[in-house]
């Protein structure tokens, strides 16, 4: 097969790679904000539980969770019979842990005197969070979120082990079926670079620009 036809073959996996990455990012985003709030503001037992959650996902390879969900939980829970959703779920849960770190640091970076000033105006805690803290925290978080998306795009490749037809899987099929040992993997690597670099770079630049504009 030619390089061009190889490329088109591998491109069949791009939908899976992108959708797994972005779905798990979405789950991680919501979970990350929630966890950051819990770890920062919830009563101690809940905050400690949040910390424990983060430690768990920082300390265990995400592949182990993907295998556990699909081959383990998949025995009893129909949802996890899907390799695709097991992958999305495991990556999403881990991303929640990572993103809670990003959001917590960003929220902590907002100067205390702004919070005090908002309180002095008579804003409620919820209003302070919504109108003062979060808009600035999101800006501070942008570069970190860019790296997180890139990480998810790369780690979505583990889904191939569960049998998901993503970029890596299609590249590997070329090896197995056509005994092409080099070109498919190089093509896959180039595709990953084309996906990860622009997003991470854009969010990093945007974050730096806005940080400078507002002197955050």
């Amino acid at each position: 097969m030619s390089i061009v036809s190889d490329l088109f073959f591998i491109l069949q996996g791009i939908t899976a790679t992108i959708s797994i990455s972005f779905l798990s990012f979405g789950i991680g985003f919501l979970l990350g904000i929630l966890l950051a709030f819990i770890r920062l503001y919830a009563p101690k037992p809940a905050a400690l539980l949040g910390d424990a959650y983060v430690k768990l996902f920082l300390g265990v390879p995400v592949l182990v969770f993907m295998l556990l969900f699909h081959f383990g939980f998949g025995q009893f829970i129909p949802f996890f019979k899907s390799a695709y959703f097991s992958s999305v779920f495991a990556l999403g849960l881990r991303s929640g842990a990572y993103q809670s770190q990003i959001f917590r640091a960003a929220i902590n970076s907002i100067p205390r005197d702004q919070l005090l000033a908002a309180r002095a105006l008579g804003l409620t805690d919820t209003q302070i969070l919504r109108y003062v803290v979060l808009p600035q925290a999101f800006i501070v978080a942008l570069p970190g979120l860019g790296s997180e998306i890139a990480l998810l795009i790369k780690d979505s490749a583990y889904a191939f082990i569960l049998g998901v037809l993503d970029i890596t899987k299609y590249a590997d099929i070329l090896r197995a079926a056509y005994r092409e040992f080099v070109a498919p993997y190089i093509l896959a690597a180039m595709l990953y670079i084309m996906l990860t670099f622009p997003i991470a770079n854009y969010l990093d630049k945007l974050g730096s620009k806005l940080k400078k504009k507002y002197a955050l």
């Binding site: 005090l116 000033a117 002095a120 008579g122 804003l123 109108y131 600035q136 002197a215 955050l216």
Partner: peptide, 30 residues
């Protein structure tokens, strides 16, 4: 307390403006 605080204006030693809002927006928020 929030209600009472809204009736007492407070200006701090540190410039404590909301940095993501313009001067006008800072004043409008309360």
């Amino acid at each position: 307390l929030a209600k009472i605080r809204s009736k007492i204006g407070f200006v701090f030693q540190q410039p404590s403006l909301f940095r993501h809002l313009t001067a006008l927006e800072n004043i409008k928020l309360g």
